[in-house]
Amino acid sequence: MVIQVENLIKEFKEIRALDSFNLELKEGEILGLIGPNGSGKSTLLLSILGIYAFEKGKISVFNQELKPNSYDIKRKIGYVPQDLALFEELTVYENIDYFCGLYVRDRKKRKELTEKAIAFVGLEKYKKFVPSKLSGGLARRLNIACGIAHEPTLIFLDEPTVAVDAQSRSFILEGIKELNRQGASIIYTSHYLEEVENLCDRIAIIDQGRNIITGTYEELRDSTITTEIIKITLLEENADILKDLRNLSHVIDVTIKDSEYTVKFDNPKSNVANIVQFLKEKGLTYLKLYTEVPSLNDVFLELTGKELRD
């Protein structure tokens, strides 16, 4: 196990930021942490990184407790903070070299790693630029390069795609996958659910300092979603069908919008076959018929009773 958090309690004065929190990061996986602002994601990261002391519980990183002087463990860790942590007066190359130098003493090796990191985030053309001359997306890439230049095997990425254009976001996400392919275990926090769905092997949903559930996307969906939504577009409109659909077993709601019927069932599976059979019996031809796959937001809504972007 790369990280193991057991029954962690962290309090800020009277506010409990983390409440009996448990988490595991397995070797070689990308673990996504999702939760609204103030849910405890960053507090968790900083507790694991040894920045925050905590009231109760246990955290082990690479099977050891992380102390201020645990230099061997720290050497394996890369951290990309949520805010840009860059020196405005240093160039792209110098920024990466500065932070890489905190991990790697050998000058030749550092130069090699810095060049590699620049190529990795695609900033070859901007080596001599200062951060203020870079676009938001490029500055984010530089922020990442500074955190991963020393080739860590455990990487913490705290919302690395905030306020980034689509092109840079896609570049960053591809980069994260590549880091993972190269063997890095990653903890990734984000507000963007589609990113987490596509990128992460497992997802932990955090709310009010508690880890509500952890699992693969499919596991989360199957364990929480108790309904199914099927959408139908018919060749010809039929006034009576609305009533007939409502009378079908397990149907709890039917609506129509722009000639598309939305049928909601109170059970999550095996409703498509019943609908197809029903339409056949009625002699109705359908143009489109599909099950709407529940999103991570639906899972989140189901678990916490609120939208993630609240």
């Binding site: 040894g50 061997d72 720290k74 932070f99 905190l102 991990y103």
Partner: peptide
């Protein structure tokens, strides 16, 4: 570490 992200980076590094 008191809010500045550069301090966070330095604090998590193995340099004393």
């Amino acid at each position: 570490v008191r809010g500045q992200s550069i301090a966070l980076r330095n604090a998590t590094s193995p340099t004393s």
